[in-house]
Simulated assay, not measured.
Amino acid sequence: MFSKLVERRLNDFKRRCGKDGDAALQLAYHAAMPVALNPELLHFLRINFFLDPPEQLPYTVEFEFLSSGLCREIDAELYEIEPEIRSELLQELMSRKDAHQRIRDIATLLWQYVEYHSPWADRVELERAQQLTALNFLDPAKAKEWLNEAEAGSLGRGEREWFIAMRQEIEELPDISTLPPNEPPEPSDLPSEKGVDYTRLRDLLAAGKWKEADEETFAVMLKASGRENDGWLDIESIKNFPCTDLRTIDQLWVKYSNGGFGFSVQKRIWESVVGIEC
């Protein structure tokens, strides 16, 4: 149950976002996972989770969130959600029907963002805190093991205080092991014109197994184009590749690579060369 302070600020944020208010609240719940936010990380959260109906959000909601009473700027382009508000937002995130998988997806995005973009390389404690938070949702046992090993080493006073604070922070985070596993996605979640099952590709990408995902991508493209027996794609099969399947593969790669990979750019070039429109 929201405190009056949190309820008032959430209602104000929802009103500011107009018809996008309900979806904007969901973005706020997602943004509560990181220890701190910058505009780029908030942007990645929106484009990974809020580009499709019914939770589709315009880029303007990012500004509305950062300028709302839900968070405050603690440094240049660095924002923090107040502890009481963050705690309640995370509880709301836990109440989603797909909470178990969604929380793991957000944690994976956070981990990969810190790992590949290194936005806080000059802020070691913040970088570690973000990684540890993500790891706690992905593998709580490993997060605690990491803390124990680090604390067992030789630490200065400042470092030891940081580890004590982080241990308390981790203990106060929601435990997703108490959530029921998500139900298998409906077929429409991974649409295919040719009846191709994309769940294995999704799972490989979600786990960050890029090499295996690349191999699976080739395998499903052969299935979608009816070229399994041939083992390769010819020009004709590429020109006639089903658009629905192309979108599904592209969106999976874009989502789980945080926009780093996908067919989107190649698709635009492809359309200009062979004249198809998807």
Rank of each mutant, 00 (worst) to 15 (best):
R200N: 09
T199K: 08
I238K: 08
Y198G: 00
S237A: 15
F218L: 09
N240V: 01
K144P: 00
G259I: 04
I249Q: 07
A143T: 06
A141H: 13
G156P: 07
R167A: 05
K194F: 01
G226W: 01
E216K: 03
L222S: 02
D230R: 12
P140N: 09
G231S: 11
A129F: 10
P184L: 06
A213M: 09
L204M: 07
L135I: 01
E159C: 07
T217E: 11
Q251F: 09
G226C: 04
E159V: 08
L233C: 06
P185K: 12
T199A: 06
I249M: 14
N240H: 13
K255L: 07
T217Q: 07
M166E: 14
E149D: 12
V196D: 02
A150Y: 04
V196I: 04
G195H: 13
D234E: 07
L204Q: 03
I170H: 09
P185L: 14
G156Q: 13
F163K: 12
D189L: 07
T248G: 03
D234A: 03
L135N: 01
I170K: 12
F218C: 04
V196P: 00
L138I: 07
C243K: 13
E186M: 11
T133S: 11
E161M: 15
P181S: 05
K223I: 02
